[in-house]
Design a protein around this nucleic acid. Structure first.
Length: 445
RNA sequence: UCCGUAGUAGCUCAAUUGGCAGAGCGGGCGGCUGUUAACCGCUAGGUUCUUGGUUCAAGUCCAAGCUACGGAGCCA
């Protein structure tokens, strides 16, 4: 058997006999001439069966191949501008063909399908071009984030998924039976990150997080992946510098490595090329002023209601979208009202009604992709907030310890992987950004 | 949880005023030496989401329910 190659490398084997192994993505025939578009995971190549060049048995197999049948094909690589594929432009003239399995009638035809049908067949849908492209970009986004942080001196320190108490007071948690006691699935690794920076200085955690909220929107998942850096001796301003550097690097890496995938999903590259620092930084006060001015010019009554805002209220998703549309890059909004943010965020000196929090809103209506803040490092203030929230001191004893043994100013943020992927890929829903989405009413397959 | 829309063949959809349940794709059979969602001919394929109601007659009208989609809230 000739050398087994990956289809992505096919151009390097022009004129040579090779073996490719994979699945039939599509087949079309012209009688004694059959075109088999073969996927192998790395790419796609057209394999051409001429009746005269093969045994009658092999040709009959080629002629009868169904979509997604698994095969091993040997033949000679030749350049042909007509040959479709990824990368395309080269095809394999089939000499020998081995059928591993003739696939049953494949549910996902080359025609259009509805969302419910596709999500019910997600285990097969991931084979489709568009999904293949998106999930490859997702992998690069995660790698780019991690590489950049590693290069900046951050250490990956894993945080637990089963936790004894809520990380934040607001959202609903999944509970699990922990040998007769109640434990919860993590909604953040942040509190543990705060312990870990006192050992390692700059850390991040990366893993799945869980929210039992009954959210049903294009930007929510029940199980989603978050990357959370935390930095000792860090201010909110320095935090924004880090976030900006991270996001710019991620976009740059995707543009550099995935021109092919971005083309498959039809992403407007100019929108991504525009993502370079610095990003605008506006205060919550300023954002409210801008939204009020915008609100004054709206005529549509429904939209006017949606976009109404008074100082002190948190932004809804229409507000975030309207704000983000005022910029062609991501925009930082900082100093949110203390009352709408988490208990551990530092109040602004001399103005305790706002806190040292900062969100990063992505352009094109993708909303908040990063939430971060300076954390309270004063023991008494933190303890008072925990009591005031009625969180129960016992579960937070270890967290308060961090303020007793060498507390330092520190800050951190969390970036939602799926929202970032949706934005960079220009997708209308986060369900396509994760291999197997967990949504309200969706845990299969 | 609230508001809105939809549910017909394996898939995507059509069916006029309430009057015989249809097409394309996919499947099967046959044809074709350069296809790009190939094309041509033939063919099989139905609990019209469920339950109840109105009517000579219901895919179509009414009621309740189920499911999905879109939006809101909450958030990353």
């Amino acid at each position: 058997m000739a050398k087994v190659i990956q289809i992505k490398d096919i151009a390097a084997y022009e004129g040579e006999e090779v073996t490719v192994r994979g699945w039939v993505y599509n087949r079309t025939g012209k009688g004694r001439l059959q075109f088999i578009l073969l996927r192998d995971g790395s790419g796609q190549a057209q394999c051409v069966a001429f009746k005269k060049e093969m045994t009658p048995e092999d040709f009959e197999i080629a002629r009868g191949l169904t979509q997604e049948s698994s095969v091993v094909i040997s033949g000679v690589v030749r350049a042909d501008a007509r040959a479709p594929g990824i990368p395309g432009g080269f095809e394999v003239g089939i000499q020998r063909l081995q059928l591993l399995q003739q696939a049953d009638e494949y549910p996902i035809s080359p025609k259009e399908h509805g969302t419910e049908f596709l999500m019910n067949h997600r285990h097969l849908w991931v084979r489709s071009n568009r999904q293949w492209a998106i999930l490859r970009i997702r992998a690069t986004i995660i790698k780019a984030m991690r590489d950049w942080l590693d290069d900046q001196g951050f250490l990956l320190v894993d945080t637990p998924i089963i936790t004894p108490a809520a990380g934040e007071e607001t959202t609903t948690l999944f509970d699990v039976d922990y040998f007769g006691e109640t434990a919860f699935l993590a909604q953040t690794g942040q509190l543990y990150n705060e312990a870990n920076i006192m050992a390692f200085g700059k850390v991040y955690c990366f893993g799945p997080t869980f929210r039992a909220e009954k959210s049903k929107t294009r930007r929510h998942l029940i199980e989603f992946w978050m990357l959370e850096p935390e930095i000792a001796f860090c201010s909110m301003e320095a935090l924004m510098d880090i976030e900006e550097g991270l996001v710019c690097n991620v976009v740059e890496q995707v543009l550099a490595k995935h021109g092919q995938e971005l083309e498959i999903i039809g992403r407007d590259l100019s929108k991504l090329a525009a993502i370079t620092g610095p990003f605008a930084r506006i205060s919550y006060d300023d954002a409210v002023t801008r939204l009020k001015a915008y609100h004054a010019e709206i005529d549509d009554p429904q939209r006017k209601t949606e976009l109404a805002i008074e100082w002190g209220e948190d932004f809804g998703s229409p507000h975030e979208t309207a704000l983000a549309e005022m910029f062609d890059k991501p925009v930082f909004v900082y100093h949110y009202p203390t009352a709408v943010k988490a208990f551990y965020m530092t109040p602004v000196a001399g103005r305790p009604e706002v806190c040292r929090s900062v969100d990063l809103l992505a352009p094109e209506g993708y909303g908040e992709i990063i939430g971060g803040s300076e954390r309270i490092h004063d023991l008494d203030l933190l303890a008072a907030n925990i009591d005031e929230m009625g969180l129960g001191r016992e579960a937070y004893e270890w967290y308060l310890d961090l303020r007793k043994f060498g507390t330092v100013p520190h800050a951190g943020f969390g970036i939602g992987i799926e929202r970032t992927v949706a934005w960079i890929c220009g997708l209308s829903h986060v369900r396509e950004t994760i291999p197997y989405a967990r949504l309200l009413n969706r845990k299969y397959p």
